[in-house]
Every structure is written in C-alpha cells, then in structure tokens.
C-alpha cells in the first residue's frame, strides 16, 4: 500500500519506517476485527447448541467429517510453523533463506484450501440438516473464503515478489517514493511485511484450532 507518495518536486519524502509501522499496527487491528467476525459464528454456535442440545442440534444422521477436518488443521498448523521458521531465517540469514520455507508454507495454505474444497464437495449432510450443519457450513465457508484467501493473497505477493527480484541486490529497506527505490523497494518490503504476516497467520491458525475443537471434537 506504500508507493503512494509519488515524487513531486520540492516535497519531502516520507520516513521509511512509516510503512512498516502502518502494516504492523494494521495487522493487529485486522486481527481484532477478525475476532469480532468469527466471534459472531462462535456466538451462533454456543447459542444454538445451548438452546437445543438434543436431537435437533445434530441429528444422528449428520456425521462429522473428521478426516478432512484433521487434514485442514494439519496443513494450517504446519504452514504456520514454517512461517515462523521463515521469519527466523529472515532475521538471521536474510531474504534468501526466507524464500524457501515461505514458499512451502504458501503451498500448504493452498493445500488447506484444497482439502477444504474437497470436504465441501463430499459433505455427508446438507446445510439444512439442523443448526450444527448450518454453523458448520457458515464457519468453514467464511474461514476458507476470508481467512485462507487473504493469507494466500498476502503470502503469494511476497513470495512472488521475492523470487522475481532475487538477483537484484537488496535496496534500502523501503523507498518511499517508489521511483527512487526501483526494484529494490520490492525486495525491501519482505523485511517489513514478513513479520506482520506471521502475526496474522499465527492468529488465523489459532482460529483454526478453535474451529477444529468446536466443530469436530465437541461437535
């Protein structure tokens, strides 16, 4: 979101750490908004389950698709772990070491989305089979559609950018007036964004753990 301030003669450039702070603060606020968003699903889950814990909540014909659920959870957790490894490598050995684990992490998010899609396609019940089925469809649907897709977009941009500029010597961390920084500006972004992304993705992995516990374990 940065290269906005294009160069106008006589106007001072922005301090480079501004973007880093914007993204860093922004990602925390984004997570807070996500808490509210998934909180609504959590509320629906608790409210409907408490009101009717008997046969209507989850009739015996509604089987919990645990296998695919574990698949999604495993992909997300390993991916989050690799994101941590990547950030650590970035700090110690620079962007080159970040690229590999980050790319695998990205593939795992794709895999999570793939497993999720397979689960929807082979769902052993319909959305209308009671409150549990409703909450299941809505919750996994929005987790896949909002959480996984935004993470994929963000990580994909970083990975792609990093691979494309891997032969370019790293420029200044951020060049504000993008023109001056050239390609180096893009490679510099990784330094700024990787840690913010890791925060976001840890948070979403946490959401996935809660999802798993409620939708598959407690059901």
């Amino acid at each position: 979101m940065q290269e906005m301030g294009f160069q106008t003669a006589g106007y001072e450039a922005e301090p480079p750490e501004v973007m880093a702070r914007n993204i860093n603060v922004g990602v925390r606020l984004l997570s807070a908004a996500m808490v509210s968003f998934f909180g609504a699903f959590l509320f629906a889950y608790v409210y409907l389950k408490e009101r009717d814990a008997g046969a209507v909540w989850r009739p015996s014909s509604v089987k919990v698709p645990t296998g695919t659920g574990i698949g999604v959870l495993a992909c997300v957790l390993v991916s989050a772990l690799l994101t941590g490894v990547a950030v650590d490598a970035l700090r110690r050995r620079g962007e080159g070491a970040w690229r590999g684990p980050a790319a695998i992490s990205l593939l795992l998010i794709y895999a999570a989305l793939g497993v999720q899609c397979y689960q929807w396609a082979s769902l052993p019940f319909t959305p209308g089979s009671g409150p549990y089925a409703s909450v299941f469809v809505a919750w996994t649907g929005f987790y896949g559609g909002v959480a996984l897709l935004t993470s994929i977009y963000w990580l994909q941009t970083m990975v792609t950018g990093s691979f494309r500029t891997r032969h370019v010597p790293a420029g200044p961390v951020v060049s504000v007036a993008g023109a001056a920084g050239g390609e180096g500006a893009i490679s510099g972004r990784i330094q700024v964004e990787a840690r913010s992304f890791a925060f976001y993705w840890y948070f979403l992995a946490g959401v996935q753990v809660v999802t798993f516990l409620l939708l598959y374990v407690v059901a």
Binding site: L48, D52, A133, S134, A138
Partner: peptide, 27 residues
C-alpha cells in the same frame, strides 16, 4: 464485522438453505 456476519447468515438461510433463524428447524 458482527453486522457483516449477521447479514451473511441471513443470506445463507435464504440462499443455501441453512436454518440459523428458522425456529422450527432448530434455529
């Protein structure tokens, strides 16, 4: 975000056929 979620749930009830707010189907 709670509003967005609420609107989405009603939309799901109407379009996908979930039963969040259907009193005689557990909602």
């Amino acid at each position: 975000p709670v509003l967005i979620a609420g609107m989405s749930l009603v939309l799901l009830d109407r379009v996908v056929g979930t039963t969040f707010f259907m009193p005689f189907s557990g909602g």
